[in-house]
Amino acid sequence: MRIGLITSSPDHPVLAATAALLTARGHHVEVLDPTAGPAGPDGPNDSDGPHGQAGPFDPPADVYLLKAHTPAALSLARRLEERGAAVVNPVAATELCQDRLAMAELARWAGLPFAPTRAAADPAELLRAVEAGELLLPIVVKSRHSRRHDLVARVDDPARLRALAEEWPDEPVVAQPYLPSTGWDQKLWVVAGQLFCARRRSELAGPEHAELPDGDGGFGPAELSAERAAVALRAGEVFGLDVYGVDLLDGPGEPVVVDVNAFPGIRGQAGAPEALAALALRVGGAAPGVPRPRADGTGPGTGTGTGAATPASADAGPGTAAG
């Protein structure tokens, strides 16, 4: 079987381990680097592309793992989908997770306990809402469109928001109420229905949160409550994802989702490469022309729906209070 990796970092620990497993089983792993230039599904049909990029692209590989989320990577994956290739995760689902407002609207419409989310054209718009008494502090301000080195900041007073307005003058943003927590996040990763988890220090944590409250960094599926596990698995159904991450606030209370990520790093999780390799073989092994089921058994032909749900209406516009 031919398995394509859409990434500019094939040495990423999870991808490298997955590729090694697949190669050892006699499968051919190809790297498609979206930064490599014109070679691609619409480019020259050469046997080898630049920077180690493999080809040919016609016919496409049996399955592609979409790890990179840049515009170039998404464009490449979209052209492959148009040629009938199977892509994990689908481009539409990946793009949905990059728009934090659309993500929040869909999650809340589907009944997931997602943090209330309000959109604004820029931080200055949030500042005006605070000054008018329409938005209560503290809040968390994030770039609306998720990407590397984007804006994520806690705002406790108008002065901080005024500074963000000066630093990020044209940045579309979302605001969520700041909810007290331990300063740590519960990172839940799912690969084809298999759960992995760990605690990671929140980007918003202060120096008082340097250590875990219980002094123990150990956190695995055995310590994960059934309620939180169910939330993570439900997120995959809602967003149409097979490889994804769900960030929950740490603590003993009811779960609150603050983010959903398509194809995250899943670093340091024993069994993740094996799960990813099995997923690639399962999706890639579907007969050509037959609707491919999701790896967790849902999807076309299973009676449980396909792809992400669609909210009936949006209700988190500028007039919606965050809190």
Rank of each mutant, 00 (worst) to 15 (best):
Ala120Leu: 12
His12Asp: 14
Ala165Phe: 10
Ala175Lys: 09
Pro273Asp: 05
Glu211Gln: 02
Thr117Ala: 00
Leu106Tyr: 12
Asp315Cys: 12
Ser143Thr: 12
Lys187Val: 00
Glu211Ala: 06
Leu66Pro: 03
Gly307Cys: 08
Ala175Tyr: 01
Glu131Cys: 12
Leu281Gly: 09
Ala280Thr: 07
Thr310Ile: 05
Val190Thr: 01
Glu223Met: 01
Asn261Val: 04
Ala104Tyr: 03
Arg147Asp: 11
Arg200His: 04
Leu212His: 02
Gly317Ile: 01
Gly319Ile: 09
Leu66Ile: 06
Pro311Ser: 15
Gln194Ser: 08
Gln186Glu: 09
Lys187Asn: 08
Asp48Asn: 09
Glu95Leu: 13
His28Asp: 14
Asp216Asn: 07
Ser202Asp: 03
Pro291Gly: 12
Val87Lys: 01
Asp296Arg: 05
Thr35Val: 04
Gly37Lys: 04
Leu276Met: 15
Leu241Phe: 11
Asp58Gln: 02
Pro158Thr: 09
Glu134Leu: 12
Phe196His: 07
Leu74Asp: 11
Thr94Pro: 05
Ala110Gly: 15
Pro169Tyr: 02
Val88Tyr: 03
Val140Arg: 10
Val91Leu: 03
Ala39Leu: 12
Pro71Ala: 08
Ala153Leu: 00
Gly133Trp: 06
Thr117Cys: 05
Ala165Asn: 15
Thr117Gly: 02
Val257Cys: 01
Gly4Met: 07
Gly37His: 02
Leu137Phe: 07
Arg25Ser: 07
Gly40Ala: 06
Glu254Met: 08
Asp42Phe: 05
Ala129Lys: 01
Gly317Gln: 08
Val260Pro: 02
Tyr244Asn: 00
His27Lys: 13
Ile266Leu: 04
Ala232Met: 05
Ser181Ile: 12
Thr306Lys: 03
Val290Glu: 13
Pro113Val: 15
Thr304Ala: 06
Leu224Asp: 01
Pro158Ala: 15
Val14His: 10
Val238Leu: 11
Leu106Lys: 12
Pro56Asn: 13
Glu203Gly: 04
Ala93Thr: 06
Ala287Val: 09
Asp250Tyr: 00
Phe57Tyr: 13
Gly271Tyr: 05
Arg118Pro: 11
Ala192Ile: 04
Gly240Tyr: 03
His12Phe: 13
Ala163Gly: 06
Pro138Lys: 11
Ala120Tyr: 13
Pro113Cys: 10
Leu281Arg: 14
Thr94Tyr: 04
Gly240Pro: 08
Leu212Tyr: 15
Ala39Phe: 00
Gly301Pro: 08
Arg2Asn: 06
Trp168Pro: 13
Leu74Lys: 14
Pro34Tyr: 00
Gly240Phe: 03
Ala19Thr: 04
Asp58His: 12
Arg162Tyr: 09
Gly52Tyr: 03
Arg200Lys: 04
Asn89Ala: 09
Asn45His: 04
Gly289Lys: 15
Ala120Thr: 10
Ala86Leu: 05
Ala39Asp: 06
Met103Gly: 13
Thr7Gly: 07
Leu96Lys: 12
Gln269Phe: 00
Glu131Val: 11
Ala85Asn: 14
Pro50Val: 07
Val31Phe: 11
Phe114Tyr: 08
Pro255Val: 00
